[in-house]
């Protein structure tokens, strides 16, 4: 057993390796029942198709909605679905925190020399969640090609940065929302109103919700940076709700800040748990 006080980069690398190792073990265990895994993955793909279909139907009836055509609407949908799908894949299991606390398995995580967050996030890691990510990426690719985007070098370089920011932001939302279960262990659904609700909200161009909501999800819970601001940047369009165009460059900073806040929420939740023992 190595009790190292290793420097931070080394500790981070080890944490990531542990994450991959745990996730891989779960994948192998699930692969023992390939039929069930395929069925469940198929269902997730169909569910994504249904959601996408709903967006297509709405835009199909409307023609254009707040200035967005069908494919521009699908671009917004695809950015949101990719970000939330990846966050669900990487961090989705965190929402079962309350259940782990109730059954005592969270205590078992605390007596292992690995961050309980890594153990929680990988618990029940399932490749079926790729069934959300892959269709979303496909729609993203199609809408990026079909939409009238002025592909400058900076835009091409910003795309992966924006995607990474969106994913990080969604992970932060997921974690922060799940931390409420440190206080109320059976309130998983309250977190869902932020996670799944956040996804439902960001699947459409935000302008259609009105200025009040756009400002709230820009400055209070920064969901606007998941799909709306990136879409405005990619389509090079002025913000129809009148917010400054400079905001669209803030996505990476917002993502980092959200992750810091979510980490703080996790730490304080953990401290609270360890001082109440629930």
């Amino acid at each position: 057993m190595a009790e190292t006080h290793a420097p931070a980069p080394e500790r981070l690398a080890w944490t990531l390796r542990t994450y991959v190792r745990l996730a891989w073990t779960w994948c192998r265990a699930l692969a023992q029942y390939p039929a069930s895994l395929l069925l469940l993955t198929g269902m997730v793909v169909l569910a994504s198709a249904a959601e996408m279909g709903a967006v297509a139907i709405v835009f199909g009836h409307a023609g254009t909605l707040v200035g967005f055509t069908v494919f521009e609407g699908l671009l917004v949908y695809a950015l949101a679905a990719t970000a939330f799908g990846c966050a669900d894949l990487l961090m989705g299991s965190v929402e079962r925190l309350g259940q782990h606390i109730r059954t005592g398995s969270f205590d078992a995580m605390l007596v292992r020399p690995v961050s309980p967050l890594v153990q929680l996030a990988t618990d029940g890691f399932s490749p079926r969640r790729l069934g959300k990510v892959v269709p979303a990426l496909a729609v993203l690719a199609v809408s990026l090609t079909v939409c009238d985007i002025d592909w400058t070098v900076s835009r091409a370089l910003m795309l992966p940065v924006l995607l990474a920011s969106s994913i990080a932001l969604c992970c932060a939302v997921w974690l922060a929302a799940s931390c409420t279960q440190f206080v109320a262990t059976d309130a998983r659904e309250a977190a869902n109103s932020l996670t799944y609700g956040g996804q439902a909200l960001t699947e459409y161009p935000l302008a259609l919700y009105g200025r009040g909501i756009v400002r709230a999800v820009t400055f209070a819970v920064p969901l606007a940076f998941v799909s709306w601001q990136p879409a405005l940047y990619l389509l090079d369009r002025p913000d129809p709700t009148g917010l400054p165009a400079a905001l669209r460059w803030a996505a990476p900073a917002v993502a980092v800040l959200s992750c810091v806040l979510a980490a703080a929420a996790w730490r304080s939740g953990l401290r609270r748990y360890r001082s109440t023992g629930s």
């Binding site: 709405v58 059976d186 109103s193 609700g197 439902a200 909200l201 259609l208 919700y209 909501i213």
Partner: peptide, 23 residues
């Protein structure tokens, strides 16, 4: 707590879906 949480989720989704359809 679970009932209240579920209620919150229903309201959030109701508002989002309603605003999309109003648009």
């Amino acid at each position: 707590a679970a009932t209240f949480a579920g209620l919150l989720t229903n309201c959030v989704f109701g508002v989002i879906n309603a605003l999309v359809l109003l648009a």
